[in-house]
Simulated assay, not measured.
Amino acid sequence: MGIKPSYIKSLSQELIVKHGNRFSGDFDENKLAVSEVSVIDSKRVRNRVAGYITRKVNRRKEI
């Protein structure tokens, strides 16, 4: 769909390292988890981070 900005990737990687066990393959659950573990004012940025984390988790399951 497009190239993800580096701040989305870096924030997502940081959250996965610190709170990896809180995230699953479900986008809606990850939205809530991102809201709980970080302070992101923008709903769009929160959703993009949650989507990137969801993709990472699902890719990890496939391998």
Rank of each mutant, 00 (worst) to 15 (best):
I3N: 10
S10G: 01
K56G: 02
Y7S: 14
K43M: 04
K56D: 01
I3G: 09
S12H: 08
I16W: 00
K31S: 01
R59Q: 03
E29Q: 06
S6I: 14
E29A: 06
N30V: 10
S24L: 02
K31T: 01
V45W: 03
L32A: 11
A50L: 08
R22H: 12
S6W: 07
D26A: 12
Y7P: 03
G20A: 10
E36I: 06
I40M: 00
Y52A: 02
N58D: 02
R46A: 13
S35C: 03
S35L: 06
R55W: 08
R60D: 03
N47H: 03
I3V: 12
L32V: 12
K31E: 01
R59T: 01
K31P: 00
A33T: 11
I63F: 15
I63M: 14
L15A: 06
S35E: 07
R55A: 13
E14H: 12
I16N: 05
A33S: 15
G51F: 06
M1A: 11
S35A: 12
K43T: 03
G25W: 05
G51T: 12
H19L: 00
T54W: 00
V49S: 05
R44F: 11
V39M: 07
V39F: 05
E36C: 04
V39G: 03
V49P: 10
K61R: 13
R59K: 13
R44L: 10
S35F: 04
L11F: 12
K18R: 14
E62I: 15
A33M: 10
E36P: 12
N21G: 04
Q13H: 13
V17S: 13
L32K: 15
T54A: 00
S24P: 08
V49K: 03
H19Q: 05
Q13L: 11
Y7T: 12
N47A: 05
E29K: 07
V49C: 06
T54H: 01
S42V: 03
M1Q: 09
L15P: 15
G2T: 07
K61E: 00
H19M: 01
N30M: 09
K43D: 10
E36L: 09
E62C: 08
L11H: 12
R59E: 00
S6F: 09
R60K: 15
K31Y: 00
N21K: 06
L11R: 15
A50R: 11
R22I: 04
P5E: 14
S10Q: 10
E14M: 14
R59S: 02
I8S: 07
S12C: 04
Y7A: 09
R60F: 05
I3Y: 11
K43R: 07
V17D: 11
R60S: 09
S12Q: 08
K31Q: 01
I8F: 14
R22Q: 09
K4L: 15
